[in-house]
Design a protein around this nucleic acid. Structure first.
Lengths: 205, 205
DNA sequence: TAGATTGTTAATCGATTAACAATC
DNA sequence: TAGATTGTTAATCGATTAACAATC
């Protein structure tokens, strides 16, 4: 079992390698890498060696190869069929979020309860009634659901999604999916908590 | 210097206490608390004791008191004058984000480069031209800037903001503010990285 | 007073850093 | 071959957990 600390550093490594590739840099040493990330060279080497020996002594790491290794580790190339629930301001923002597809998430549908929103088009996506959701998923199964709904609504929505075989969640609500479905794959984005930490740092000055 | 690990747990503690308060729960033991958070009672007690002895033997922690202590620690009551740069889909979502104010962030202005957006009203906020920004900040200083702009634009924008005395940033871009301004207070929200971690967890199955 | 539960010290565990032999 | 830099083992540091005396 690989430590969460390592996993959470990989996306940053990946982004750095994307940058280097754009600058046509061929190789990078753990020292350079560490410097850019604000970490130690030791840590970079330890982190990478958790997954294999991707470097070469006296040369460093080949940018293109390392990038593709990390991409593979993160499973970014795999297509993940995704639906979104809750087309409020945040939901709309996520639908329009371009980098989505660069991480392999293919947005197939969006659902809402509000009659005013149902039927409207956001980018390529036409918003459907949430009442269609179960029927829709029976015909076109999805891997991931993005939850852009209030916590109170989330419990019932996830219950329906879970029954339809949706096991992974990108959760912007405060509903604790793992608590009710310990098997679920959940990545929480708690903007509130992030703001609170910022508030703490500000008040400390 | 208090560990980042502890700080990042406090907002969750705070949310839990809000919930308990709504349910009119008077007190909570570290065991109950730990159970709800998926942590150990030891850790709850250690975390809280970093800041003071808020509990009482044989009773536990008073919900109302502990909540207000944590709120104070996080500086949530302090008013933080905030502006937002970049009124795209994400920027709009953040402007409409209601919990903002519950963490003490008072949104005073929003700025964009696009002529189509300038002058339009999002909620209570009228979008201004980014060319007005420096003049605006001279008249009405701000503490915090929310960066909802592409990384390429961020460097120049932050340079201008920093000159105007804005030292804290809620950063949705991939521009590394700390690298250029080590003194800056920065909280990054990297949605990309969050998605990548989700992708990893999915592909691991 | 007895029971419950904290505050706090000590023990453990795991993450990070240092060191260096291996090797390109 | 000499220099650079990895892969990997050992040492350190800090976070978490366990234990228990203090006390409400």
């Amino acid at each position: 079992m690989i430590s969460q600390f390592i996993i959470r550093r990989l996306p940053r490594y990946y982004r750095y390698l994307l940058q280097l590739e754009e600058l046509s840099v061929e190789s990078v040493s753990s020292a350079q890498f560490a410097n850019a990330m604000g970490l130690t060279a030791s840590q970079i080497r330890q982190d990478l060696n958790t997954f294999g020996a991707f470097g070469r002594q006296g040369y460093g790491y080949n940018v293109r190869i390392l990038k593709s290794k990390i991409s593979e580790l993160l499973g970014l190339a795999a297509e993940k069929k995704t639906i979104l629930i809750g087309v409020g301001n945040l939901g709309r923002a996520v639908i329009m979020y371009k980098d989505f597809i660069h991480r392999g998430f293919l947005l197939c549908g969006a659902f809402d309860v509000s009659a005013e929103i149902i039927g409207s088009k956001i980018g390529d996506i036409t918003v459907q009634s949430i009442e269609n959701m179960e029927k829709y998923l029976k015909e076109t199964p999805a891997d991931v659901a993005v939850l852009c709904i209030p916590s109170v609504a989330a419990k019932d929505v996830v219950s329906a999604l879970w029954k339809c075989g949706v096991t992974a969640y990108w959760n912007f609500s405060h509903y604790d999916v793992k608590n009710d479905y310990p098997e679920a794959i959940v990545e929480n984005v708690h903007l509130n908590d992030s703001l609170s930490v910022l508030s703490y740092e500000i008040s400390r000055n």
